[in-house]
Design a protein around this nucleic acid. Structure first.
Lengths: 242, 242
DNA sequence: AAATTTTGAGCGAGCGCTCGATTTTTTCTG
DNA sequence: CAGAAAAAATCGAGCGCTCGCTCAAAATTT
């Protein structure tokens, strides 16, 4: 039993490396990407996407020109367009791979853990923090670009963010039903969780300076949430609005 | 005593109208604004800034061109430049008035309320939510533009955001000292508060659809925080990191 | 030698911004 | 208080520049 949970928990690490991400992007977009050879294509795509994340996280994707990107990635202007049809398509490529990847990993919980709302919540926190650590540039990029972007791409971003919040809201609702959490508005509670998780990757420097380990951070967030959600036999709070 | 508190609390409403904001901006920038007559200048500045907030909140300030702004405000390209030296200066004007205004209002608490950490926290929540309601476009604009912008302007934004968080952190620290709150990391707790307040103006539509009143929202946030901060005699949580 | 991949100068469009001409407002004068 | 003169404010076509994007030619791989 435990071995299954560990296998599940450990399995995502290989899937979220830049190489693995880019291999999937290359496959998924094989109709628009004009380069046929995967050995050439995946490697170059990785250079392009790495540079996009690096420059985008510094100045913002919008403010990054394709000439900058060409210089930083070492891929000529023309070659860039063998990998995407437009600048917006490049953004869509990145977000379109990143967001479903995160969601699929957060959804992939063992039935054993899932059966206990408190354990499930703790697992979600742990997994999310470790995932954001492993995919730091992607998380920062997605956060920075989620707003203020072409209606289509922006819609996906907002949608997926809502989905992630929904995963947390579901666990909380289940916990309330099972009597382990006492909280009136699960959606509001889920809204409260998100920034706690975001703090780890948005203020990475702060925690590095303080010498805070991942384990300590996860423990602190889990504990703070345990209080905030009024675990176990605490009284029910009043209902929001009505 | 109470009259003083009420007078303080009620007094900010006039200061945050677009007209009042623009009058102060006009005064503060009288060296760069080439229009001398305040009757003409303030009125036109208001049209410019209203249009900037409207377009900026829709597409993002960066993506809004000065030609769009000229059309939307009814002020010609040339005339715009009688009010600011550059597009960046326009942004700086807006953020430079907005952010100190918010801070000054949140700091202006009566000594009576201030003396009780729990009441002080409740007052801060109430005031912040009502303020964000009164200045909705400004809050949304500042939130959208805080990241991904010219180093100088961005610095002010980050700085002021930290300042607001600091106000909350101070109250929490005082509450811990007085034994009314039990929380290990006041900064982390303050980080937790911010998104709860932001939800009101960032997802205004959600709460409008639900028919949630300001009073109900403030009550829900206050209650949720009361639990999260472990008010009164609850046990101390473990310390983050070490 | 055929197919694939890369190259970068060049295109039109739209950007932030300017400035001489023009309109509007204020001040001066008989 | 009318009307001229001065001052203030507005106008928008146009400047130089950079942007996203293209394509014929060159380099590389098969």
């Amino acid at each position: 039993m435990k071995r299954v949970a560990i296998a599940r928990g450990a399995s995502w690490e290989a899937r979220v490396s830049t190489g693995a991400m880019c291999a999937r992007i290359f496959e998924r977009h094989n109709e628009t990407i004009r380069v046929r050879n995967p050995n050439i294509g995946v490697a170059k795509l990785a250079r392009i996407i790495e540079a996009t994340l690096r420059l985008g996280n510094r100045r913002g994707f919008h403010a990054t020109s394709l000439r900058d990107l060409s210089k930083a990635s070492g891929v000529s202007m023309g070659a860039l367009y063998s990998y995407f049809d437009s600048k917006a398509a490049l953004l869509s490529m990145i977000l379109g791979e990143f967001m479903p990847t995160v969601t699929s990993i957060l959804v992939d919980v063992s039935p054993e853990v899932r059966s206990d709302a408190r354990r499930h919540l703790a697992w979600l926190i742990d997994t999310h923090v470790r995932l954001s650590e492993a995919m730091l540039p992607w998380f920062v990029f997605a956060f920075m670009e989620a707003k203020a972007f072409p209606r289509a791409e922006r819609h996906i971003a907002v949608e997926t963010e809502a989905q992630t919040e929904g995963i947390f809201a579901d666990v909380i609702r289940r916990g309330v039903k099972d009597g382990v959490f006492a909280v009136s508005d699960a959606d509001l509670a889920a809204t409260l969780i998100k920034p706690l998780l975001q703090d780890w990757y948005l203020k990475r420097g702060k925690y590095r300076n303080r010498g805070t380990s991942i384990e300590a951070y996860v423990a602190a967030v889990t504990e703070m949430l345990a209080m905030g959600l009024g675990i176990q036999e605490r009284a029910q709070t009043r209902v929001l609005a009505s």
